[in-house]
Simulated assay, not measured.
Amino acid sequence: MARYLPLARPWFGLVAAFALLGVAVQVVAVAVDSAPYSVFTGTGARVANVFAYFTILSNLLVGVTHVLLAVDPARDSLAMRVLLLDAVVGIAVTGIVYNLVLAQTVDPHGLHQVATVVCHMITPLLAVVGWLVFGPRGLVDREVVLVSAGYPLAWLAFTLVRGAVIDWYPYPFVDVVAHGYARIAVNCLVVAVLFVGLGFGALALDRRLPGLGAR
């Protein structure tokens, strides 16, 4: 572990800084520019709505877990294991889905563009590379993978129920009004399978890669 520690802690700190910076910039962007959120007329409502996005929640998870790792890379508990896997897989899904599916549907400007680049590109890359290089290793098992799946499923359930109430959805692939429940059910299944598949991929890699706590 010692040979990884000098680089691991500053890397975890760097990842946390970018993740939290991206969220902060996005909050400021929606506070000063209502154009992309015209359905929410008040500043407070627009800011609160930022946290309905899977991207923002995943960046927050990355920020919090990596602050904890920067302070104590040996930190270990079931909650930490689940949150860290949710953070790494969630931010990987964020990068994959945005860059392969959503990037062609949006045209951000100003602070929105800065937040988009940080939250969807820089943070996913740094977080995934950091996990591959440093880990921490030995924190992923079958139970952790299955429990971590509760995060995207809970987000999907919340998003669909809230969307039905307020008639607004954060992403086109969960917009029931535009696509109908059958299509959205398929889209949600794809996201869930991607998340769990990446979780089991992380389990396989965790057993083979070196890093902090490697056995």
Rank of each mutant, 00 (worst) to 15 (best):
Pro170Phe: 05
Tyr181Gln: 14
Ala192Leu: 11
Leu84Asp: 08
Leu20Ser: 04
Ala31Asn: 05
Pro36Glu: 01
His66Met: 09
Ala29Phe: 05
Ala52Tyr: 08
Met1Ile: 10
Leu68Pro: 00
Ile122Leu: 15
Asp76Met: 01
Asp206Arg: 04
Ala29Ile: 10
Val144Ser: 05
Val25Ile: 15
Val23Asn: 12
Ala52Gly: 14
Ala2Gln: 15
Leu111Gln: 12
Trp131Asp: 06
Ala35Ser: 14
Ala17Val: 15
Tyr151Arg: 04
Thr123His: 12
Met80Thr: 11
Ala127Asn: 07
Leu78Glu: 07
Gly130Met: 05
Ala48Lys: 06
Trp11Pro: 04
Pro210Val: 06
Asn99Gln: 14
Gln113Ser: 13
Asp33Asn: 15
Met80Leu: 10
Val128Leu: 07
Pro136Asp: 01
Ala103Ser: 13
Gly110Cys: 12
Gly180Pro: 10
Val64Leu: 14
Ile122Asn: 03
Leu203Phe: 10
Phe12Arg: 10
His66Trp: 06
Pro210Asp: 07
Val27Gly: 09
Leu139Asn: 07
Val62Met: 05
Val177Leu: 09
Ala92Trp: 10
Thr116Arg: 14
Thr41Ile: 09
Ser38Asn: 06
Gly180Ile: 15
Gly163Tyr: 07
Arg137Cys: 05
Val27Ala: 14
Asp107Lys: 14
Ala24Thr: 14
Ala16Lys: 11
Val176Met: 05
Arg162Ile: 03
Asp107Gly: 13
Leu78Asp: 11
Leu132Pro: 00
Leu194Ile: 04
Gly13Asn: 09
Arg162His: 06
Leu57Arg: 02
Val28Ser: 12
Asp72Arg: 13
